[in-house]
Computed example of a mutant assay.
Amino acid sequence: MPRTRTYLMCPPRHFTVEYAINPWMDPSVAVDGGLALKQWEQLRDALTDLGHTVHTLDPEPGLPDMVFAANGAFSVDGVVYGARFRHPQRAPEAAFHRAFYAGGAWDFREPHHVNEGEGDFAYLPGAYGGLILAGYGFRTEPAAHAEAQDVLGRPVVSLHLVDASYYHLDTALAALDDANVVYYPEAFSPASQRVLRQLFPDAVLADRADAEAFGLNLVGDGRHVVLNTEATGMAGKLRAAGYEPVPVELGELKRGGGSVKCAVAELRA
């Protein structure tokens, strides 16, 4: 069943690909800024049409990746674990996310270790009493997993990402509802694959084509799953598992190495 959610998004008014900090970015290919904004608006409207609330973070000139709002923090039950970006190009974004939470009734905690928010953390409140899955290998430091566990008071399961194309957890795994996930096994180490099989025996499994289409970079509310239109195979798998896919075209944002989930942070009050 769907559950109403609250999200934070940041419009891509300054979105470009000026540098390459992941394998999907190519600064030699121009971004259509108008199209990127139109696609972002369609994503926002898809979420609000489903009954969800979307708050907006103002974009800042000179920070083209702020549209990927999921990376700015990770919240559970009103407590916010802030981000500390690995790459200097994105590091200033953290302060604007911190300011957003400072303006509300949030308990914001400053991080000491490198982590990229919901890019590498996923929360499943209905799994094992409330479980955090956390990725490492390319961006977030393993030490941040222990820090997040201390800050948020939830058990954290560390998962080792081994394919540079899937540099964030949210490119290789997503929560479909409060207790189940979809993931691309080959993005993880053999040991992490075993952990996922044990924790989620009923998970939806993706193949490489699904992952390359950013079909794992999705937002689910328990029934509806908002995902990239390119991920047709993933949409079919989700439909067969009982979910309702909601396709949204995000081809321009994919040029920056992100899709639906990258652009959406969940606010868990």
Results as ranks from 00 to 15, higher is better:
Arg3Trp: 00
Pro12Glu: 11
His14Cys: 05
Phe15Gly: 09
Phe15Leu: 09
Tyr19Trp: 15
Ala20Gly: 12
Ile21Ala: 12
Asn22Ser: 10
Pro23Met: 04
Trp24Asp: 08
Asp26Asn: 15
Val29Gly: 02
Gln39Pro: 05
Trp40Ala: 10
Asp45Ile: 04
Ala46Asp: 00
Leu47Cys: 06
Thr48Met: 07
His52Asn: 12
Leu57Trp: 02
Asp58Cys: 00
Asp58Arg: 06
Leu63Gln: 08
Met66Ala: 07
Met66His: 02
Gly78Asn: 08
Val80Pro: 00
Val80His: 00
Gly82Tyr: 04
Arg84Gly: 05
Arg84Trp: 10
Arg86Gly: 11
Arg86Lys: 15
Pro88Ile: 01
Pro92Trp: 09
Ala95Met: 03
His97Trp: 13
His97Asp: 01
Tyr101Ala: 08
Ala102Ile: 00
Gly103His: 13
Gly104Leu: 13
Trp106Gly: 05
Phe108Leu: 14
Glu110Gln: 14
His112Val: 13
His112Ser: 14
His113Asn: 14
Val114Arg: 01
Asn115Met: 06
Asn115Val: 06
Glu118Tyr: 04
Asp120Arg: 03
Phe121Thr: 09
Pro125Gly: 12
Pro125Ala: 12
Ala127Gly: 05
Gly130Pro: 07
Ile132Tyr: 01
Tyr136Glu: 13
Arg139Asp: 05
Glu147Ile: 06
Asp150Trp: 01
Val151Thr: 15
Gly153Phe: 15
Val156His: 04
Leu159Ala: 07
His168Cys: 02
Thr171Gly: 03
Ala172Val: 02
Leu176Asn: 07
Ala187His: 01
Phe188Trp: 12
Phe188Gly: 11
Pro190Ala: 04
Ala191Tyr: 02
Arg194Met: 11
Arg194Gly: 13
Gln198Glu: 15
Leu199Phe: 10
Leu205Gly: 00
Arg208Trp: 01
Ala213Gly: 09
Asn217Gly: 03
Leu218Ala: 13
Val219Pro: 01
Val219Cys: 02
Arg223Lys: 08
Val225Met: 06
Leu227Ala: 09
Thr229Arg: 14
Ala231Met: 03
Met234Ile: 06
Leu238Ser: 01
Glu244Tyr: 06
Glu244Asp: 15
Pro247Phe: 02
Leu250Ser: 02
Leu253Arg: 09
Gly256Met: 10
Gly257Gln: 05
